Each structure stands twice: as structure tokens, then as C-alpha cells.
Simulated assay, not measured.
Amino acid sequence: MRGFRHWRWHLDEMYVKLNGEMVYLWRAVYQEGEILESFVTKTRDKQAALTFMKKPLKCHGSPEAITTDGLRFYGAAMNELGSREKREIGRWANNRVENSHLPFRRRERAMLRFRRMKTLQKFASVHANIHNHLSLERHLVDREIYKERRSAASAEWQTIAS
């Protein structure tokens, strides 16, 4: 995983309803679509952003660039971490992470929402790992290679699950 530090990360937060109350699910996504980190908080401010940013930086090292929304708390948190110059903001620059929310939303709807914050955090972490393992980016390879990779991933998943 140390190889991820030389690339671009995308950071974003999304609302998740928890017993009628809105909480925030923060996500760090690698430029190729791998979910690096998921983190749940009740607030959306500098302190929450700082806490969230420290986790992937500690595990995966520092990336070349971090793409975020234009929200001010990201800039304040990155100032405190000393990586303000790595921040990139653009109108459609953060589409990678926005589109990575879709499989999570689909699964959330199927589960009929969440009741507790701890359950949401566990689900977000596990869902990220499973999605990373089984998402093979069909559009990048031909059919034969895709089928080989898919069967290998399924076989590995069967050994893990059993």
C-alpha cells in the first residue's frame, strides 16, 4: 500500500441518515477508484477533517496531490498538516470520489438504512474492502482477462469467507 503515496487522492464527505439524524461519512479514494479510508463523524468541520486526514496519511504515506471540494475546512486542516500546496480544487475534479459513493448508496438502500454509528462505521469499512477486492474495472481490459481476474477474485473471496 505504500505505493499509493505517489499518486492523487480524492477526499469527500457525504450525508448518511442515522435514525433520522444526519451524520457524515468521510472517504478517501485513490485515483484509480480504490477506497483508502472511511470515517464517520457527527460534525463537518476542521477538527473532523483533521482527524479524518490523519488516518490515511498515517497508513499510506503522503500523496503527490489531494483533490477536495472547495470547502474551507479542508484548507484549514491541510494548513495544520503542512500540506496546503498539495491541495487541488476544480469544478469536476472530485468526480472520482463522488461516483464512488454510488455503490455505497445502493447497498445502504438495500439494508434499509442504519441505526447506530458503530454499525455504520463497520459497514463502511467492510464495504470498502469488499468493493476494492471485487471491483476489477471492466472498461480497462478485454473480456478474457476480465473473466480470469473475476474468477480469481471470486475464488479468493470464497477462501476468505469460508
Rank of each mutant, 00 (worst) to 15 (best):
R149H: 08
Q121K: 10
T119H: 05
R87I: 05
Y146K: 09
I89M: 13
I130W: 10
R105I: 14
G61V: 10
R87T: 06
V141G: 05
H127D: 00
A48T: 01
K147E: 14
P63Y: 01
K122A: 11
D69E: 07
T119R: 08
R105C: 12
R143I: 10
M117E: 11
E98D: 02
R106Y: 15
K58N: 15
S125G: 15
A110I: 07
E88L: 05
G82E: 12
S100H: 00
H127W: 09
F52G: 02
F52H: 10
R116G: 12
R72Y: 09
L102W: 03
G75T: 11
R115T: 04
I130A: 06
K118F: 13
S135N: 08
R91F: 13
G75W: 00
S151W: 09
R149T: 01
R138I: 00
R91E: 14
F114A: 00
H60F: 15
Q47G: 05
A77T: 10
G70R: 14
R109G: 05
E144A: 11
S151Y: 03
H60V: 07
L102F: 08
S151T: 09
M78I: 04
A48W: 06
I145W: 03
T67H: 05
H139P: 00
A76L: 11
A76S: 12
R44G: 02
T43M: 10
M117N: 04
L136N: 02
F123R: 01
V97E: 02
S83P: 00
S62P: 13
R72N: 13
I130Y: 07
S151N: 11
R91D: 10
N79W: 10
R113F: 09
E85K: 15
R84W: 10
A155L: 12
E137K: 14
H133C: 07
R105V: 12
M111W: 12
E98H: 06
Y146E: 06
R72F: 13
D142Q: 11
N79F: 05
K86Y: 03
F123M: 05
H101C: 04
T67W: 03
R105M: 13
S100E: 03
L134R: 04
H133K: 11
E64D: 15
T51S: 10
A155K: 08
R116W: 03
R150F: 12
R113Y: 11
N94T: 05
F104Y: 02
N129H: 13
H127P: 00
Q47D: 12
K118C: 14
E137Q: 08
L50G: 03
A128R: 00
A153C: 09
R115E: 11
A155G: 15
R105H: 10
L134S: 05
R105A: 13
L140R: 15
F114L: 07
C59D: 15
G75R: 03
R116H: 07
K54W: 06
